[in-house]
Design a protein around this nucleic acid. Sequence first.
DNA 1: TAGCTAGCTTTCCAGTATGGAAAGCGATCC
DNA 2: GGATCGCTTTCCATACTGGAAAGCTAGCTA
Lengths: 102, 102
Amino acid sequence: MSAQARPVFDEIVHAPNRLQVCAMLAAVEALDFATVREALAISDSVLSKHVKVLADAGYVHTAKTPHGSRTRTWLSLTDAGRTALDGHLAELRRIAALATTP
Amino acid sequence: MSAQARPVFDEIVHAPNRLQVCAMLAAVEALDFATVREALAISDSVLSKHVKVLADAGYVHTAKTPHGSRTRTWLSLTDAGRTALDGHLAELRRIAALATTP
DNA sequence: TAGCTAGCTTTCCAGTATGGAAAGCGATCC
DNA sequence: GGATCGCTTTCCATACTGGAAAGCTAGCTA
């Protein structure tokens, strides 16, 4: 799966919080907004803005589903998002490899 | 050697250009200013500022040596720098591991 | 129907980071 | 005394972050 993606440094994915969001989402089908927000310990507004950045980039898909009486927003990584994350992680590995004396 | 450093996310190391500088320096004894600047394809001022940030954090040591008639500035990772880099890479690996479905 | 609430969104408002260009500076070289 | 090299620092403009607060919508509740 994330075997050999083309190493591409992706600024959108690199931001600390977004990197974590992407990594969390990559492991599962979907996660709801509140779960991610609590995992990262950031405010609603901040997560909302990061999700918007990822969604605008086409990396994350959001879906609102009725949950009990309320609505719940589910976040999931799109194919493009997975490709971007894999590529970015590959680039990080490449850079990390520089840190190892030949 | 960078086997199991304590995973600590380091903002100073995380910035793209600085991450590369640290990774490059980790692999060798030292590199000179111009070599690093060309490798990253950034301006003098930008590299100088990043080096200053790393030096202020105690992560990089700079030394000027006479080279021919001119002076050359050598950059090298300090022990603290290596520890920070190793810890940061460990944290990135930890995050990356989240991206792998259990 | 008029509130009230949960669950995001958007706006507002700093504070910080980044980058290039240009000006500086000390040490040669001519 | 210039001109250069090799960084440093300053200047300036843009972009990113984050929290607080105001907004919005849908579904209760009285």
